[in-house]
Design a protein around this nucleic acid. Structure first.
Lengths: 233, 233
DNA sequence: TTAATCTATCTTGTTGCCAAGTCAGTGCAC
DNA sequence: GTGCACTGACTTGGCAACAAGATAGATTAA
């Protein structure tokens, strides 16, 4: 196991160090195997890993080539401005797509966070954040129908929950405690974010309440591709 | 590629869902392959992935078995208390080991953060954070010799930089802006944290200054095993 | 009976061979 | 000369056969 990991480390160093540039061809599997005196299988597995990490791509019959590196977006996690505003401020070609608005089954954790009773109806509104055509985050908001009675009809067209809340007369938002963890994407997230199963996602989970009335507005889950961001907190 | 990922997802779900308990034996590679009508190679790769993610372990001749799951420690990222205090407050069996204190080569980014000139001597002090015998974080602090002149002698025995700073008469600490990102461990980090190359690390980088004098005390890098923590910010 | 050894069969781990895709060069028909 | 088909050498991709470790049961010897 160690040999593969070391080889992966080495090649990543070489790519980052500029020895290979995007679309350069890497040594063939046999070449590298001979050089390092390891079985081709070791090199092969290393290349497969590098593919899943997004550093290279391989084409049967042609060879293995280094990928364009992903853009690195600095992102401010704290602060009360909306995601849309954050991105537009920084001048990125940014867009949001609404991907679904559905009623959910009962979920203890979410219902508790929303202070909802077991008989409350709760909708989830999913949006996909896209920068330069590249999907970089999935944002899911959970809201009670008793608080937003038109959510079933209008939910499918919302791209900014903050604007929606403002349109309902809520002005100042207070975040509740935010939990942060690192997860790997499930199938749905892989498809939405068009990434392999080895791209870690930064997973933020928090509530949001109206500052004046204390009404719990939403419970939200955000999945950021960790290879696209550096975060500032 | 998709088949393997789906299989990995499925087995993780089953483990988390309690279908298999720690030390239970999983179906043999051939069994699973026949059940799902895929080549054994697919199951094999899935099992290898699950090993590297820390869910299972395999023994030649015996089979594959599910691992004990890691402890999940809630960790407060913000706030000015030291790591040591944070952990002791929460009642964990916590210990810190000093792993090195060495002078470093010139590094533009670190020197700039420390407001050091190119001729300044800078030391790095590394500590390993251990909970219940399990290494869970590497903490590296960079300091100027001009600020802490005995660091070369005493550095190897420091386990709490905060206490060291207090002993030098610095009382109130102000954090500078903190950058957060997700990285995979290099060889040194894999050895220290005893983890595979697929355990993502939460990487925090920040400066720290004395609140009264404005002196830059340190530049610090912390690598947390992301599978051991949930973070609260 | 008891203990040791062999054997059959299961497990995971490894390797080497061949399939399949790509491309450049060669040679032939026109 | 031009175009086309073929060939050979290279690439990555996939798989089947084999190696090696473990275990339970049968066999054998004392």
């Amino acid at each position: 196991m160690g040999e593969k990991a070391l080889l992966v480390d080495k090649i990543i160093e070489e790519i980052k160090g500029g020895k290979y540039r995007p679309h350069d061809k890497l040594p063939s599997e046999n070449e590298l195997a001979d050089q390092h005196k390891v079985p081709r299988m070791v090199v092969r597995k290393a290349y497969e890993r590098l593919q899943e990490l997004g550093y290279i791509f391989s084409k049967q019959g042609k060879g293995s080539f280094v990928q364009n590196q992903k853009l690195q977006i600095p992102l401010i996690l704290t602060g009360d401005v909306s995601f849309t505003e954050k991105m537009q401020e920084m001048g990125y070609n940014f867009e949001t797509k609404n991907i679904y608005c559905e009623q959910i089954e009962y979920d203890a954790s979410i219902y508790h966070s929303l202070k909802a009773s077991q008989h409350d109806i709760v909708f989830k509104i999913g949006r996909l954040r896209i920068v330069d055509g590249c999907p970089i985050a999935v944002h899911v908001s959970y809201v009670k129908e008793t608080v937003f009675q038109d959510i079933g009809q209008t939910g499918k067209s919302i791209t900014s929950m903050f604007q929606y809340y403002k349109s309902k007369g809520y002005a100042g938002f207070g975040p509740m405690k935010t939990q942060l963890s690192v997860v790997f994407p499930n199938e749905a997230e892989r498809n939405l974010l068009r990434c392999s199963s080895l791209i870690p996602l930064l997973f933020l989970e928090s509530g949001c309440m109206d500052r004046k009335t204390g009404t719990v507005l939403e419970h939200s889950k955000i999945f950021y591709r960790s290879d696209c961001f550096t975060y500032v907190i």
